[in-house]
């Protein structure tokens, strides 16, 4: 506030500033009650052991059990497999497609964009059901390959752990690449086309333009989509529950899926599940922090 401001308006302003809290309070209270408080609650729960609601405090017993739990280790490994394989491929594909479609003279540009965006209209459950039917042992892919005589017996897409993980990655790629592409397309509209014109005159190839202009100028949006997709992948649940139920064995299970299992499908072990949830929280926070640091330092 400037020193020139007369007393009365300053007082008035403070009064209206106080009214501002009324606008903010409903949202603040809800977020505190629905996010922060449950997080504290989850931590307290994670220090207790027992089944159902018979819980007693046992310190860090649940956390000590985690490293010895093979299912947890498998779920953790799978979750990171999805993260490391799916997120980079998806974001790179989305970027390249956006760069291709950014050309105003390109024919059928709107058509391509619409087609690539189409999968976003399906819910995660719907797209999991579609891909389940496509890749199941008597599904379309196997039927076609058999009809064409390319294979003699069905490929176990969903009953072999490695294949099943790949099918889940493919499903996610199908559903989310177009979604991320729209973010990049929106960002590219902000880049003056003269920048590309100048680069072309200087003899820069398409690949060079992509590396030296597109990627650096889109950095904030790339960072934003990376954080969003990392967060989403670490919580992967719908696809796994619908397509494989975590199987074969624990071959495709994710952390969210395992937490859901021990909370709602057998005798509930809230404390142990809460400890596991807390590890997801820590991972999301650490990864987001690293990504933001990397994003800032290169600016």
């Amino acid at each position: 506030m400037t020193t020139h401001a007369a007393r009365k308006p300053a007082g008035l302003e403070r009064k209206t500033a106080r009214k501002g809290w009324l606008f903010i309070m409903p949202a603040v209270i809800l977020i505190v009650m629905m996010s922060f408080y449950p997080m504290v609650e989850a931590f307290l729960l994670s220090l207790q052991t027992g089944t159902g609601n018979n819980l007693t405090y046992k310190g860090f017993a649940n956390y000590e059990r985690l490293p010895k739990d093979n299912t947890y280790a498998a779920a953790l490994g799978n979750t990171f497999f999805y993260l490391i394989v799916q997120v980079p491929i998806m974001l790179l594909a989305a970027l390249v497609l956006a760069a291709m479609l950014n050309d105003r003279r390109l024919m059928f540009r709107g058509f391509y964009r619409t087609m690539i965006f189409l999968p976003v209209a399906t819910s995660l459950v719907s797209c999991s059901m579609i891909f389940l039917q496509l890749f199941t042992s008597n599904g379309l892919i196997n039927s076609l390959l058999l009809n064409w005589g390319w294979i003699t017996e069905p490929i176990p897409f969903l009953t072999n752990a490695v294949y099943a993980r790949i099918v889940i990655v493919v499903t996610m790629l199908w559903r989310w690449t177009g979604y991320n592409m729209v973010f990049y397309l929106a960002g590219l509209q902000n880049i003056d086309s003269q920048v590309y014109e100048a680069a072309r005159i200087d003899g820069a190839s398409a690949a060079q333009q992509f590396r030296k202009i597109t990627v650096p100028l889109l950095r904030p949006i790339i960072l934003f989509t990376t954080v969003l997709s990392t967060n989403g992948t670490l919580q992967l649940f719908d696809e796994v529950r619908i397509m494989t139920e975590g199987g074969p064995g624990t071959g495709t299970a994710t952390l969210s899926f395992y937490i859901y299992r021990i909370t709602f499908e057998r005798v509930p072990r809230f404390g142990y599940a809460a400890a596991m949830s807390f590890t997801i929280f820590v991972m999301v926070a650490v990864l987001a922090f690293i990504q933001m640091k990397v994003g800032e330092s290169k600016q």
């Binding site: 629905m34 909370t263 809460a274």
Partner: peptide, 20 residues
Amino acid sequence: ILMLSMMIPPAATLIPLFRM
């Protein structure tokens, strides 16, 4: 402070919310 809540994954608050 509110921005920090973006770090909280729904999977982590599932159990406390369910009990609450």
